[in-house]
């Protein structure tokens, strides 16, 4: 069986203040994913390696890492795709807790800030809401997000300013704003209209490139800019 060299960035705060690189020679075939390679290292080579994972089929969004400097899901990237040594680092722009485990707290705060759930206070809100296929199509692609955080690692503006709500949160806000069953747009627009809302985005577009579920957050954020600009205009004439 052929092998491949993996260079992994380790960080063990109880042993050393600085991260270091460790190399492993891992056996692989055409079907070996980065996640499987990490599992092999943990089981057979170095049990101290820490990383997050769960579903191994691009649904849970836990195994995001930087593979050769690009944000990737470990379960959806394969050793066969990379010639030479593969470097694995924790996701960029997040604080690192240990090895490949990042602190996602700020990301979760940003998600909560946009109230990503149906808001509907109408009388019949306890009844089943009907929705036509056309109404569903408006937001369907934006609802595939698995909260893996790859788009935050890809976003240079989030890297410069972590207060930026970021691609996934803004996309979810847009997804609920587009939902015919929802009435919470006015509440969410307050967050979108902020400097750290849609307006920190400079349409780099890398978020959409790295998204493992093809959600296209860049499109959602920029449609959000149009909504925010409209919101400003409407507010000018309201008073």
């Amino acid at each position: 069986m052929t092998t491949k060299r993996l260079s992994i960035q380790r960080y063990l705060p109880e042993q050393s203040k600085t991260p270091f690189w460790q190399e492993f020679e891992v056996p692989f075939d055409d079907s070996t994913s980065i996640l499987e390679a990490l599992n092999h290292i943990k089981e057979d080579m170095d049990g101290s390696l820490s990383y997050r994972w769960s579903c191994r089929m691009a649904i849970c969004g836990s195994c995001g890492v930087m593979v050769n400097g690009e944000p990737k899901l470990g379960c959806k990237s394969f050793l066969r795709e990379y010639p030479g040594t593969i470097s694995i680092e924790p996701l960029a722009h997040f604080p690192v807790q240990k090895d490949l485990i990042i602190d996602m707290e700020i990301f979760l705060e940003h998600l909560a800030a946009v109230q990503p759930y149906l808001i509907n206070d109408s009388q019949d809100s306890n009844q089943t809401h009907k929705q036509t296929p056309a109404q569903l199509a408006k937001y369907l692609t934006f609802s595939d997000c698995i909260n893996c955080g790859l788009c935050y690692s890809a976003c240079p503006q989030f890297g410069l300013n972590p207060e930026f709500l970021g691609p996934a949160a803004l996309t979810l806000a847009h997804r609920y704003n587009l939902d015919s069953r929802d009435q919470g747009k006015a509440q969410r627009m307050v967050q979108l209209n902020r400097e750290e809302g849609v307006w920190t985005c400079t349409f780099v577009g890398y978020c959409s490139e790295v998204c493992p579920k093809s959600v296209d957050p860049a499109a959602a954020v920029n449609q959000g800019k149009v909504e925010s600009a409209k919101d400003l205009l409407i507010n000018l004439f309201k008073r």
Binding site: E109, A112, A113, V190, Q191, N193, R194, E195, G197, W199, K225, S228, A229, L232
Partner: peptide, 17 residues
Amino acid sequence: MMEKRVKRSDEPIWWAL
């Protein structure tokens, strides 16, 4: 956590131009 200082950005004007 959620209720940060909420101020509207003036960016829409510059973005429109």
